[in-house]
Simulated scan of single mutants.
Amino acid sequence: MYEELGVKTVINAAGTQTFLGGSIVHPKVMEAMKEAAGKFVNMGELIERAGEFIAKVTGAEAAIVTAGCYAALVVGTAACIMRGTTLEEIDNRPLHHYPESREWIDLIQIPPNTENLKNEVIIQRGHYTPYEHAFRVAGGRLRKVGSERSCTVREIEEAIGEKTAAIAFIVAKSDRGVSLKKVIEVGKRYDVPVIVDAAAELPPRENLRKFIAMGADLVAFSGGKAIRGPNDTGFLCGRRDLIRLAALQAFPYHGIGRIAKVDRTQVVGLITALKIFLERDEEAEFKSWENKLKTIERILEGTPQIKRMEIKVESETRRSPVLTIELDIESLGASSKEVAYRLREKPPYVWVLFAEPDKLMVFPYTLRDGEENIVGESIRKTLEEML
């Protein structure tokens, strides 16, 4: 079909990037999705049962499946904003009593018009990502504290007021500012929910339970990255009262999350992928990824346009290897961004990431067996051609 549509396929050494399709799902996931497509179900019941499974896996009180981690952040933020309103009094049971009454809909559809509610979401300035817009989509008003590199507990505490709905924490930015442990302590002290964005924080598998065990009120994960579920899946787990409010904002109801509805095939695919993820041998998987990077490193040894190469663990919170290639951009007369773009422009269309001005980053966990050789040769050849 790609060929029929005129879409070229690429070799993905950039990791589980959404813009490249996330990950390659396990064949058993595709089989489960195909089976799910052949029958109808009450979506409310399916989402609830899937949430019970996810809650058990994460150690949370409750959970819901969402259309990606972004959607989880949106409905999670809406839940925090609607905390303490009459929406808490709605009884959506039995689940077959659907659709909602007009009274329900009026309450559910308050976000994003939240001026009369607690709607401020505190976030450390150093935790900026483009995904922080999810908090705004729900009607949140961001209250940024600290600087790009630092923040203090006192700055967070001084930002808390009568309009505070939540405190957001981005795990990928854990090296900046106040730690999650201390942020959670502040949240508990002032009765302010803490929302954790852990979209790409797998592996290790223990992270599925880690942030809930630390005391986070809501945690959002992607289902289409390391879990290898459908690219458009994710989940939100946490406190039962907040998950209940988030569920009323999500599909199949008519809240702000309706725009990001999930299909029965997505829900079944995610749960199937999660079960497989729980059984995978993390050490063997890490070793296989590391070996692919070592192969690329060997192919590139002696390339004059490369100053040095290093294989290391991606971050303190995510245990996966990455190969960093430092380029001699003076002899090349080009930046790492230009090299990365050149790799993408011609066959075999290799995608790697870059950090300007001089570094390429190669991620192995989306490479099929044998593609590491193609990646290494493509980088070497492209560097030679650019001289």
Rank of each mutant, 00 (worst) to 15 (best):
F211A: 03
L73M: 14
N207R: 05
F286G: 06
A168M: 09
K287C: 03
R308F: 11
C151F: 00
S147A: 13
S378K: 00
Y349G: 03
V262I: 12
A62R: 00
I81S: 05
F363K: 01
K359C: 13
A36H: 07
L202D: 04
T86I: 09
E31H: 14
K312G: 12
T324Y: 07
K381Q: 12
N231F: 10
R136P: 08
G15R: 07
D217L: 12
V350M: 05
T317D: 12
P112L: 09
P347G: 05
A50Y: 02
D175W: 15
V375G: 07
N42W: 08
E290F: 15
G161Q: 10
S174F: 12
L20F: 09
I271D: 02
R125C: 11
M386L: 15
I24A: 12
A273T: 02
H97D: 08
V219Y: 02
T114G: 09
A14Y: 03
I54F: 07
K337P: 06
A250V: 03
L180M: 12
M82T: 04
Q109K: 14
V7C: 08
D191I: 10
A60S: 15
D232E: 12
L46K: 06
I276E: 01
E48P: 04
R149L: 14
I160C: 04
G146H: 12
K225R: 15
S288A: 15
L180T: 00
A79G: 07
H254C: 08
Y128D: 00
M30E: 10
V192C: 07
V65S: 06
N92R: 13
R102W: 13
S378D: 07
P321M: 09
A55T: 00
C80L: 10
T272P: 03
L87W: 01
K28F: 12
R298G: 04
A334P: 02
H133S: 14
F53D: 06
T317W: 09
R280I: 09
A71D: 08
R244I: 11
N116H: 15
V262Y: 02
L387K: 15
V75L: 02
A60T: 05
D91N: 09
A14E: 03
D281W: 06
G51P: 04
K210M: 04
F19C: 14
K188M: 10
R205T: 02
F251R: 13
S335M: 08
G177M: 00
G22M: 05
Y128G: 04
T18C: 08
N113C: 11
V137D: 02
P357A: 09
G215N: 00
V267L: 03
A250R: 01
G234M: 06
D263C: 11
Q124N: 08
L367Y: 00
E35N: 15
E316Q: 11
P99M: 01
T66W: 02
E371P: 01
I110Y: 06
G15K: 05
A165C: 08
G76N: 09
T85K: 01
L270A: 06
L343A: 07
R280C: 04
L353I: 13
I167N: 03
V267H: 00
N116R: 14
